[in-house]
Design a protein around this nucleic acid. Structure first.
Lengths: 362, 362
DNA sequence: GTGAAAGCGCTAACAT
DNA sequence: ATGTTAGCGCTTTCAC
């Protein structure tokens, strides 16, 4: 019974069209497609020719359906416009493509609602694995994921029971604050935004606290500020208020540790807009080491997250899970952070210095 | 014949499991899933309950296979780590997700080889449409795409015969150079990297030439430099050489128009590293208006590409094509660029000024 | 309103 | 070495 398609143009040729053109059965075509060993050289050639002739292109959906597994991996990211994540996403995609896996990228804007929906969509597409570059930390979501048995790796955050690869954020924050303490700062603020997930937030804050406590500095709750994340890379009202609040204290901070580079750069902008000079009047340390931080015009002292290694290990873990299945104990890589000192930090201005010379940045 | 799966855990429940649990046929389940009108309220409820009970999740592959169309769209991008493209990709993904479409993102690194492979992969996955945020311009690729009849939109570049949405790059370059001319510059270099596709390259160069010609300035081929793209946002040897070459001329340029912001910022870094002061010794104009360009510490004068509008129009076009099919005449949106003047441009230092005062940036 | 049946394009036994 | 066959999980006529 020959079919004729008049509507909406020719339909794509299938394996059957190839079979007819090569005068073989469709399984023979399938055999050469999957290059199974038992095909006669000349038959194979006939099939190859037929494929070229009819312009055949395999249908991944059909294949994936019958094989009950896909070669697609989902990447969930909070904000693709954040350089830290887009760089990570790029590295991950590269590695996945290198082993023949396609990538579905989902942006959540950091919203639980979106996160759930996107994950649901990935599961409906039966992705072989999911890499979460950011995670709201909602346990129900994690539970659902676990039920499906899909391979899962969470990057840049620790979640008990799941494969994780993250940097030691506590140690990183400690590094940052210790650096400031060593420069002689005593009043050090911690500024954070909800762009950073709760988990990470806690770790970084705890690193901040630990460093202060070790140095015997008194903890001052007024120096810890968490805000809605400001517009990226622009000075911002909320940030201006936050900074104003800190500086209005009777004993204002001389340095700020910001929980991420985007925020740190914004702060730098805002501070200078207010007439402060960084680092003379205010030292700033960030977290992430995004590319902008390294510009000499910006020169942000910051804690480095090793992106390449993060991506490499995360994809490595994910591929293992896809191979072996999701059973077995959770694995974790904890990467050590590093501090890179640039021009945004300097010793504090002592009272008596205030009119006189300011110490230059190291 | 009941099946038992002992290996690799439980398999995911199918529509049949739901049917059994609800004591209806599978087509009834399908009917409530696609909420077809003709289902009795109580039957629907029974099915809904069964779905929840067995933890059923629709299989998008099976659905897409039988419907012979997917709800997945491919986005092809050259470099996801380039803020301009990651911002665009994010906007596009948002709009697609809003209408229920999933997004497969492919990074090509600007390589034709990769571009072809990734497009092939998208086609095998039978994506409903492809949005190219960057395109090497290879006509064979375009031809293949056209043959498949897949919905296609090319953003940020004009390709005859395909739906395009791009900004008027020629006008943009003209704007940039005219601005420099009006400031009094006479020797204006054009610096470009292969990060910019050939098409765009040509347009921008032609805008540069046109502006110069209109002003009656003599064209000097030595002022036009195209280089391999340097490491993003870091000063770079190649760039140092390129700049050195320009400044070594007997009549060196006082201003540079860079074909993209990433390059412009790199140039700024390199120039200052070499002891030049921007804009006093050298004015720089970029193209794109990526977020970093707006930082007051960077303050790059640049040509704005309206990203939001680009994404909106591109996705709009793509959705139309997915609806209507790929036949019909190609459509095109040409967006007007805008110049935003910041601190990286100023009148040139005249010989007699050289030791004395320099004019500040506007 | 509901069910039976015929595929979508492919793979993977199993025959031959 | 090649062909036959039975699905993968779903949609979609078409009977009842």
């Amino acid at each position: 019974m020959s079919r004729t398609r008049s509507t909406s143009g020719r339909r794509q040729p299938t394996i059957l069209d190839v079979a007819r053109a090569a005068r073989v059965s469709k399984s023979t075509v399938s055999n050469v497609l999957r290059d199974a060993p038992e095909v006669a050289p000349d038959t194979r050639q006939r099939v190859l020719d037929a494929i070229a002739k009819v312009g055949y292109r395999p249908n991944a959906l059909a294949r994936n359906l019958v094989q009950r597994r896909t070669t697609t991996v989902g990447i969930v990211v909070g904000d693709l416009a954040n350089p830290f994540y887009s760089e990570l996403a790029k590295l991950a995609e590269q590695r996945l493509a290198a082993v023949g896996l396609a990538t579905m990228i989902c942006n959540t804007d950091g919203l639980q609602r979106n996160e759930q929906e996107k994950i649901e969509m990935l599961l409906e597409h039966r992705v072989a694995g999911i890499l979460m570059l950011q995670f709201t930390g909602q346990s129900a979501t994690l539970e659902k994921l676990r039920e499906t048995g899909v391979a899962l790796v969470i990057a840049s955050q620790l979640q008990p029971g799941a494969d994780c690869v993250d940097v030691d954020e506590r140690a990183g924050a400690d590094l940052a604050v210790t650096h400031l303490l060593e420069l002689g700062h005593e009043r050090i603020a911690y500024l954070s935004s909800d762009l950073v997930e709760r988990q990470s937030e806690r770790s970084r804050l705890s690193g901040y606290t630990r460093a202060l406590r070790r140095a015997g500095a008194r903890h001052d709750a007024r120096l810890v500020v968490r805000m809605r994340h400001p517009a990226p890379l622009r000075s911002d009202d909320r940030l201006r208020d936050a900074l104003g609040g800190l500086l209005a204290l009777d004993d204002p901070p001389t340095a700020v540790f910001a929980s991420n580079d985007l925020l740190a750069v914004d702060l730098l902008e805002t501070a200078e807009e207010q007439g402060l000079v960084v680092p003379k009047d205010l030292s700033i340390v960030g977290f992430d080491d995004i590319l902008v931080a390294g510009l000499s015009r910006v020169a942000l002292t910051t804690v480095v997250q090793p992106r390449e290694e993060l991506a490499r290990l995360a994809i490595g873990l994910l591929l293992e899970r896809i191979e072996e299945g999701a059973h077995g104990p959770a694995r974790r890589y904890l990467l050590p952070p590093e501090l890179v000192v640039r021009g945004s930090t300097a010793p504090p201005l002592r009272r008596e210095d205030e009119v006189a010379h300011a110490l230059p940045a190291t």
